[in-house]
C-alpha cells in the first residue's frame, strides 16, 4: 500500500495555543513557589525565537541552494560545536580549540561523506535538505563525545599522575604510560551513545524518525534512516574521541617522555 499521509500545516494561532500551555505550566510552578517560572518563560521565549530564526535561515539556505553557502553553514556548525566543547573544559589551553576542531571535522566529515555520498548518494552532492540536518545530528553527538573525552582524559591524567610516572620509570613511552587514561576517556565518550543504542525504539523514539513519520514517510524507511544514523553517530564519536585523546595527552609530556610540570598547574 502506498503511504499517503502528509503533514498538517500549522499557523501562528496553533503556536499561540501551545504557548498558552506553557503559561499554565509556568503558573503551576509559580503557585507552588518552585522558583523556576522565570527560567521556564525565558526558555519558552528563547525556543520560539531561536527556532523561528533557524527556520528562516534554513529556508534561505534551501532556497539559495549554493554549495559554498552550505559548506559555510557546516563550518559554522563545527566552529560552534568546537567553542562549546572548549568552554566546558576546566583546562582551556591554547591548542585545545585547534585539536577539538580538527577531531570534530575529521570525525563528522568522514561520517557525513559516507552517509550522504556513499549510502544516500544525494544529488547534487550538497543537497541541503539532507546535508544540513544530518550534519546537525552527527556534529551534535561528536560535540557531546568530545566534551566527555577531554574532561575525562584531563581528570584521569591529573589523578593518576603517580601511576603514569611509575610507568615512565619502567621505560614506557608517554603513550604507553597514558594508555589507561586514554582508554577511560574514549569509554566515557562512547557510553551515552551505547546507552541510546540499547534503548532506541524501546524507551524512546528518536527525534528524526518521529519527524519523518509525522511528515508522511513510511515507518520502515524512517527506521532504516534511523539505523544508519545511529551507526554513523557511534562511528563519528569513536573517530573524534580517538583523535582528540591522542592529540590531547601529548601536552602532558615532553618529547623525552617526561611529565610536563607546567601542564598540571
Amino acid at each position: 500500500m502506498e503511504y499517503t499521509h502528509t503533514l498538517v500545516d500549522l499557523n501562528y494561532l496553533d503556536l499561540i495555543i501551545a504557548l498558552s500551555l506553557m503559561l499554565i505550566a509556568a503558573g503551576l510552578y509559580r503557585w507552588y513557589r518552585i522558583g523556576l517560572e522565570v527560567a521556564l518563560i525565558i526558555g519558552t521565549v528563547r525556543t520560539f525565537i531561536q527556532l523561528l530564526a533557524v527556520g528562516y535561515v534554513l529556508k534561505f539556505i534551501f532556497d539559495f541552494n549554493r554549495w559554498y553557502l552550505i559548506v559555510l553553514t557546516l563550518l559554522v556548525m563545527i566552529a560552534v560545536a568546537t567553542r562549546t566543547v572548549v568552554q566546558r573544559q576546566q583546562r582551556k589551553t591554547k591548542e585545545l580549540p585547534y585539536i577539538v576542531g580538527f577531531a570534530i571535522t575529521v570525525g563528522s566529515g568522514i561520517t557525513l561523506f559516507v552517509i550522504t555520498q556513499v549510502i544516500i548518494q544525494i544529488e547534487p552532492w550538497y543537497e541541503p535538505h539532507y546535508l544540513i540536518p544530518l550534519a546537525g545530528m552527527i556534529i551534535g553527538n561528536s560535540l557531546n563525545g568530545s566534551t566527555l573525552a577531554v574532561e575525562r582524559l584531563d581528570s584521569e591524567i591529573a589523578s593518576r599522575r603517580m601511576e603514569i610516572e611509575a610507568y615512565l620509570a619502567l621505560g614506557a613511552t608517554a603513550r604507553q604510560a597514558a594508555l589507561s587514561c586514554i582508554r577511560s576517556a574514549m569509554k566515557a565518550a562512547m557510553i551515552p551513545t551505547i546507552n541510546s543504542m540499547m534503548v532506541v525504539g524501546i524507551v524512546s523514539l528518536p527525534g528524526m524518525m518521529t519527524g519523518q513519520i509525522l511528515s508522511g514517510t513510511s515507518p520502515f524507511l524512517a527506521v532504516k534512516y534511523q539505523i544508519i544514523i545511529m551507526y554513523m553517530i557511534a562511528f563519528s564519536v569513536a573517530i573524534s574521541s580517538f583523535l582528540l585523546t591522542h592529540l590531547r595527552f601529548r601536552r602532558y609530556f615532553t618529547a623525552e617522555h617526561q611529565l610536563r610540570e607546567e601542564a598540571f598547574s
Partner: peptide, 29 residues
C-alpha cells in the same frame, strides 16, 4: 630515554601499584 630507564630502575617514596593482581603488575614491564 626509554632504554636508559630500563637500565636505571626507580622505586618511589610512595609505592605505586597498578590495577589487578600482583602478577598483573609484574607483567607490565
Amino acid at each position: 630515554v626509554t632504554k636508559l630507564r630500563k637500565k636505571v630502575g626507580m622505586v618511589f617514596q610512595i609505592p605505586v601499584v597498578f590495577e589487578g593482581t600482583v602478577e598483573d603488575n609484574l607483567l607490565v614491564p
